[in-house]
Computed example of a mutant assay.
Amino acid sequence: MARRKLIYEGKAKILYEGPEPGTYVQYFKDDATAGNGAKKDVIEGKGVLNNRLSEYFMVGLGNIGIPTHFIRRLNMREQLIRQVEIIPLEVIVRNFAAGSMAKRLGMEEGAALPRPIVEFSYKDDKLGDPLVPEEYIIAFGWASQQDMDDIVSMALRVNDFMSGVMYGVGIKLIDFKIEIGRVWDNEFPRLVVADEISPDCCRLWDIETGQKLDKDVFRQDLGNLADAYTEVARRLGVLPSNVTHRPKPTLIN
């Protein structure tokens, strides 16, 4: 098989040139990182789980009219996606205080917020992904005012979808982050949800017990990360209900 052209390698994924113009192949790695790469490990099976979970959420968003870069899953670790121009922001939606927000404001973790709050951070690991206000984003030309209005609206729609799906399987969506990209239809740009949606970029707590089922398990040494992700996949029906984590999870085709 011909060697594929590497486009980009990040902490958790690799992008290869796709089989058709305007496409990439997105490969999910087993690498786990925290603290902008300060803590690292390899969690066998993590990439397989995140591939299937991200597919599940991207397809669900598409079904309710929220555009994404996802085209189709290719195999256990890879997806075919549209090539997009990524806006250099992490779009964070918070429903409950946790993580950096709780630390910044001295709030108790898990405290309910009066409404979902949308924040933005500038994507730069060397700078620690600093929070930025809309004024900066517009002034530096990363996105227009219309883009920002559309991004906030899209992020809140994603939150409604994700919160409902998770609540239905006994999981509280504490917060999450997404990335937004532009695709061009002739000369007109269109915003789409890009990157991935998985437990790597969400905080997920069991409604009854408060057990964490997201990357905080790795960040805070709370147990086996693959077991936590497997539990999320099992509840969502991505895994059969009688499956527990194995080094190479058995997944429904």
Rank of each mutant, 00 (worst) to 15 (best):
residue 5 K to F: 11
residue 6 L to S: 11
residue 22 G to K: 09
residue 22 G to C: 13
residue 24 Y to E: 11
residue 25 V to F: 06
residue 25 V to I: 15
residue 26 Q to I: 02
residue 26 Q to S: 14
residue 27 Y to E: 15
residue 27 Y to R: 13
residue 31 D to E: 15
residue 32 A to F: 01
residue 32 A to G: 03
residue 34 A to N: 00
residue 35 G to N: 11
residue 37 G to S: 04
residue 41 D to I: 06
residue 46 K to V: 01
residue 49 L to N: 01
residue 49 L to D: 02
residue 53 L to E: 07
residue 55 E to F: 08
residue 57 F to Q: 09
residue 57 F to W: 15
residue 64 I to R: 12
residue 67 P to I: 07
residue 76 M to H: 02
residue 78 E to P: 00
residue 78 E to T: 11
residue 85 E to Y: 10
residue 88 P to G: 06
residue 93 V to K: 00
residue 100 S to D: 07
residue 101 M to I: 08
residue 103 K to M: 13
residue 104 R to I: 06
residue 114 P to M: 10
residue 120 F to T: 12
residue 120 F to G: 11
residue 126 K to P: 00
residue 131 L to N: 02
residue 133 P to E: 14
residue 136 Y to H: 14
residue 139 A to E: 14
residue 140 F to Q: 13
residue 146 Q to F: 00
residue 148 M to Q: 03
residue 152 V to Y: 01
residue 157 R to Q: 13
residue 158 V to S: 10
residue 162 M to Q: 07
residue 164 G to Q: 13
residue 175 D to T: 07
residue 180 I to R: 12
residue 188 F to R: 09
residue 188 F to G: 00
residue 192 V to A: 04
residue 196 E to L: 04
residue 196 E to A: 09
residue 215 K to V: 02
residue 215 K to N: 01
residue 229 Y to G: 08
residue 229 Y to W: 01
residue 231 E to W: 07
residue 232 V to E: 05
residue 232 V to K: 09
residue 243 V to W: 06
residue 246 R to I: 10
residue 248 K to F: 15
residue 250 T to Y: 12
